[in-house]
Nucleic acid binder design. Structure first.
Lengths: 136, 136
DNA sequence: TATTAACCTATAAAAACGATAGGGTAATTA
DNA sequence: TAATTACCCTATCGTTTTTATAGGTTAATA
């Protein structure tokens, strides 16, 4: 399951993309509009910022802005930043690969083959950009 | 991520399918062969039994047997029994549907549409049977 | 200089996860 | 029928993860 953090993060990015016209949007606004606990949201925005998904402007009239074009931000990127791997088992993860401790031979493991297929299909869909999402 | 419980459960079913020739296989054997903590395994087998995936034979020479043909057991079934929904968000789950509390309109929610696509593809692959798995 | 809003660290409550403990019950075999 | 094997059942426990909350600091603006 997707964590609430990740869901909040995706909603935040979608909100920024939709309602931003030059001016930054404050965490307070996002919090009340998207019903995300304020302090929890600040925490999430920090991660998104440190990963160059959003930029921040401090002080009065400050807030957050997308750090790149919406066509260059994918849901998969956001999920990886917040929740880590997309794959269901670590031994088939592209970005967070780890061997399974008990596994004897990765090459012949049927569970691995099945979940590699699952990962491929998941990533295929989740790699859609924020712009693509609007067209669904 | 798949829980260890679910991974152990899938391994157990694969083991039963592969090494069973009429005789039941004991939890002890599965535990040592698949390196699954014994008491933890008993617990998992209980769930698999109550969901008619395996049958048990008590007493000496007892053990576990698949409760149906391997072609009728899917990885998705096992995952649902052990971990619950396959979908990444509850509002697109087929078997464990729940509305998202904050969601205003399911019909127009783009996150929902995206994750519905993800679920469809995941289920498509995970619905493969234990027999299909052997052919991978 | 008052206000707004981002930034930062720490802590806490709750749930989930992975496992263990300790006994009870049924069937087989010697 | 006694011993053994192996399933059955409930409870508990320690750790990690998740979901926040608290309380203050720093920067920009009006």
């Amino acid at each position: 399951m997707l964590s609430k953090r990740a869901k909040y993060a995706i909603k935040t990015i979608l909100f920024l993309n939709e309602y931003q016209d030059n001016k930054p949007i404050s965490a307070k606004t996002i919090s009340s509009e998207e019903r995300i606990p304020y302090k929890f949201l600040e925490n999430i925005l920090r991660d998104l910022k440190s990963n160059q998904i959003v930029k921040s402007i401090r002080g009065a009239e400050g807030g957050y802005v997308l750090a790149k074009k919406p066509s260059e931000i994918s849901v998969a990127q956001i999920m990886r930043i917040i929740d880590g791997p997309i794959a269901l088992i670590p031994c088939v993860s592209e970005k967070f690969y780890e061997p399974c401790l008990e596994c004897e031979d990765e090459e012949t493991c049927r569970i691995r083959k099945l979940f590699a297929m699952v990962r491929t299909e998941m990533v295929h869909i989740l790699d859609k950009s924020i712009t693509d999402l609007a067209g669904l």
